[in-house]
Amino acid sequence: MLSRFLKKKPQLIDRDGDRYDVSLRVLSRELPGYRGVTLDLSRSGVQLETNGLLEIGSEPELKFEFDRGELEAFTCKARVVWSKQEGNNERKFRSGLTFIPVTDDEKRQLARMSTVLQTRSETDLKTLLDQARRIDPELERSYRNIQTNQPFYPAPGDSPIHPPSVEGAPPPPPAVSAAPETPAVQQDGPPPHLGVYIPLNVILEGYTWSRASCTLHIGLREGDQVHNLFFPDCQLFQVLEPTVDKTIAGLYTTKTSPTTRKLNLAGDREHKHYRFVAEGGDGLIDIVSSPCRSTPQG
């Protein structure tokens, strides 16, 4: 009876050495679609994701393409030990393969690959960041909201920013008007400056923050191209909605909003409130900064 509990979970693939989670492109005439992607890799084998099942016992010749210069692309035969569909996804299959190096060169390549992967895995994020700062001390990557000197988060009662509506036009998406129409942002206080709505069809590629120059850099992907926008003297950066893979439908910019008023920005520099919006007008990202630029320096 105890045998049930003592029984080891069947080993799907017999591989020695450490495995490294690494995503590399693998090419082979014998793979479905002639390609696969590594899920993990060790000196003795690889777990591959392909868009078709691999035949157990088959020995495809795999060509590995490395994403860094430390390793050259190399080719090695491997034997399929197991292969299965991933969940209910009919386009994703996982397979375990063991390398069958024949020549000394192939063995050397595998050993070198293992060493490089081990080095990579031991390099923690802090070291990478330190290295990046040494290369460009101005640049510090951040994937969190920026801590500004004057942190500000809109109060729950704050009105969302919408440009004044144009007569005869449907309310969202917001339009642009220069006519002195009823302010939609706030009823009391000085009349707001009217804004500009710039239609876009882009995806957020990423952003970086330069603490030294207080400049926020935003990368916008349009097809295969990434366009850079720089927001100097950035006083507020707030991600309102998760923006990953979300299409940015437009950018609304205004000189005055409840947010800019509450930030109470003094000094000679002009500041604007930028809001990237999704289809339908929902805010995605809020920025308050000096007028945006297409280059890091004005």
């Binding site: 710039i198 876009l200 366009h227 850079n228 945006c292 630029r293 297409s294």
Partner: peptide
């Protein structure tokens, strides 16, 4: 470029 257009419109 798109960035230049955005800045010009802004």
């Amino acid at each position: 470029s798109l960035s230049e257009v955005i800045c010009l419109l802004d």
